[in-house]
Nucleic acid binder design. Sequence first.
DNA 1: CTCCTTATTGGTAATGGTTTCCATTATCAA
DNA 2: TTGATAATGGAAACCATTACCAATAAGGAG
Lengths: 158, 158
Amino acid sequence: MPRGNGRGPVWWHGHFRGCGYRITSGREAILGVLTGADKHLSAEDIFLKVHRLNPAIGLTTVYRTLEILVSLGLVSKFDFGDGRARYELAQKSDFSSQHHHHLICTKCNRVIDYTEFVDDEKEFLRRAEKGLSAKYKFDIKDHLIQFYGLCDKCRNKK
Amino acid sequence: MPRGNGRGPVWWHGHFRGCGYRITSGREAILGVLTGADKHLSAEDIFLKVHRLNPAIGLTTVYRTLEILVSLGLVSKFDFGDGRARYELAQKSDFSSQHHHHLICTKCNRVIDYTEFVDDEKEFLRRAEKGLSAKYKFDIKDHLIQFYGLCDKCRNKK
DNA sequence: CTCCTTATTGGTAATGGTTTCCATTATCAA
DNA sequence: TTGATAATGGAAACCATTACCAATAAGGAG
Ligand SMILES: [Mn+2]
Ligand SMILES: [Mn+2]
Ligand SMILES: [Zn+2]
Ligand SMILES: [Zn+2]
């Protein structure tokens, strides 16, 4: 399976064309930024990074591309409560990342990824999804789990 | 313990005064609407309902009061992804409601409360919170669990 | 009850992230 | 190479939420 890890052909081109989307330099750049990013970028973050590589790309295109990427399941969109959406490459498109959730500091807005307890979580989710699907005839596609509290820095301040 | 279930003295007055907040007719009305509401009201929903009882109360006051109520833990604020915040009386202030989470239909935005699997959840959360607190020195205060998918009506439409 | 401090108020303007609009450009199948 | 049309960027619009401010009202002191 093609990875597109910087060199090599690009893993998402097929995925994109298969849905009737065209490959453009803007989309290349935006996906490149997301691939190279380590953490939770806002649309503006992405725009600024992309702008350094190609100043011709506009903020509108960033929003539009992100919308497509999210709809394809290649990118995940989060709300951490600071008024702007955050994006990160989804597990599906990032073979180096694992399924994870977030710890959110309600004081400084720091976000910590964690991958622990995936087994506990899997078991819990399996049971919950099965039961809820049956009881509410609800077809569960995805889930969101977040913990809120104080990070180590903030808990030690008055 | 005073309930304030329509008649009787009002359960939240002490809670309010204790924090230096004054009791006003606007705040009474807003809490009344929240108490009487069955589901997930937006600020504007609340404003419209309050406006019917007392047209003098402004939208700004609704927002300000909700902010206080959320900070006191009497009201919970949610983001269901439709661009506006939703509010509901918290378990803490609503003795008839149980701890629950939400199923969100990504097609029609319907939101379903569920209280099932609280035991499974409690066990999962207990373990996760304990482990995460230890590993990340993160003091967990709250959690958010939501499931996304298609409700029974939407799953049966092409 | 009356006074006085000051928290609270409502209306309006401002904010800011996200969308919409539309004329122009670029992609890519034929 | 060419043509249909998807994609683009910049500006304007959108819209939930906040900031601002002069006017009001809650409630403790006397
Ligand atoms: Mn993450
Ligand atoms: Mn609910
Ligand atoms: Zn913090
Ligand atoms: Zn639905």
